[in-house]
Simulated assay, not measured.
Amino acid sequence: MPPKMIEYTASLVGVQKAATTTLHGILREHPGFARRNPKEIHFFDDENVDWSDPDYSEYAKRAKRPRERVALDSTPSYIFIPNALRRMHDYRPEMKLIAAFRDPIDRAFSAWNMEFARRDTWPSFGQAVRDGQLSKVPPESTWKRIGSAKWDLVARGLYAQQLSRGLEVYPREQWLLMTFEQIVKDPTTAVNEVAQFIGLRPFEPETADKPRWSSPGGLDAAPVTAADIELLASSYVDELPAFVELTGFDISMWTTSRVLAGELAPADVAERLNKKAGLVLRP
């Protein structure tokens, strides 16, 4: 008998650099989780698909073991890319969605760090913040994918806009909302919350305390400045209160919240980020 096919019934839709890799990686230990399930499928944000008549035949995984019954599509761009969730809803209106959120400044720096380490032609962090062409989440009606993370560095932290749009597509009861802090401080509890939400029994993961991907150091780029942090924080003045209203999260200890409240000096944030990445001034 050929192995059974497991359809995707849940999706970890965002956000980028908010411990989605950690969640997906630990879930792979669960006996009911499809072991051949890669993390990012990028099915619903593929602009090359004919979305007037999509072929869903490949959007499933073959079970490797008899106990496997859940596959999770962990593509953190889905909540950001216009039309992705609407396409998903056309496929499965009952899909369960998980979204993790991280402080916008720390998220942006982590994303920039990752991209710059891959290609040193990337602009400095400050330049990427200033050059970002997307000051708000791109509208569905006029979306044309730019295809470069340096243009959406700021916009991917506009969580209230993204979540509001997502809630227009899927009702609140089909969402599990989490924070980066929940996941990294207690990964076992966090991953079991996800497991229960997607229909798996609680389990004791063996690698919950295993070190995960960390930002590379010694990058040859212009250091972050206090002005960079001030400019970036100002992008979220209206976003953070709206995000709290949607989620009920206490984000008072987020870096962005503290900068905006005057509790944390932008220069101190810049110094911390520079130290973390080992940034050195280019000659």
Rank of each mutant, 00 (worst) to 15 (best):
V244E: 03
R118E: 06
L134Y: 11
T20Q: 06
L200Q: 04
K136T: 04
A63S: 12
F197W: 14
W254L: 08
R172I: 08
G14L: 15
L232T: 12
A117H: 11
R107I: 09
P202C: 07
N192F: 06
D46G: 05
N274Q: 14
F203I: 15
E47K: 12
A18V: 03
P66G: 00
L246P: 04
V259K: 14
T21F: 05
A149W: 10
D228T: 14
R28L: 13
D250K: 08
A111N: 13
R69A: 00
F43C: 07
R145W: 13
R118V: 10
E245I: 01
P216I: 05
H30A: 02
Q196I: 14
R282D: 11
K276S: 13
V194Q: 08
V259C: 13
W213C: 04
E115Q: 14
L279E: 00
S11D: 07
T179E: 01
P266E: 11
P216N: 12
E173F: 15
A221N: 11
A63L: 15
P82L: 04
K275H: 11
A226Y: 01
W151V: 10
P66M: 06
D228H: 09
T255R: 07
L176A: 00
L200H: 07
A233F: 08
H30I: 15
S214E: 11
A10V: 15
V13H: 09
A195E: 04
I26S: 10
L279P: 15
L23H: 12
A34T: 08
K39I: 02
M114D: 06
L281F: 06
I81K: 14
K210A: 14
M253L: 05
P123F: 05
V269E: 12
L176S: 03
T20R: 07
A18T: 02
K39H: 09
K150D: 07
A160P: 04
G14E: 07
A242F: 03
R86K: 10
L246H: 02
L231S: 14
R69H: 13
A227G: 13
V70L: 05
R107F: 12
M114E: 08
A18R: 01
E239Q: 02
E245Q: 09
I251A: 04
R156G: 05
D209A: 10
D152M: 01
F80M: 00
M1G: 07
E58A: 01
S252T: 08
G147D: 09
L153V: 04
G132T: 10
V169S: 06
P266C: 03
N48D: 12
E140K: 14
K185R: 14
R212S: 13
K64N: 09
K150N: 11
Q182M: 08
G147V: 03
G32W: 12
M5P: 10
V184W: 10
L273W: 04
S235P: 04
Y78C: 00
K64V: 15
P216G: 06
D106W: 12
P211W: 00
G166K: 04
D220R: 09
R92Q: 06
Y170H: 10
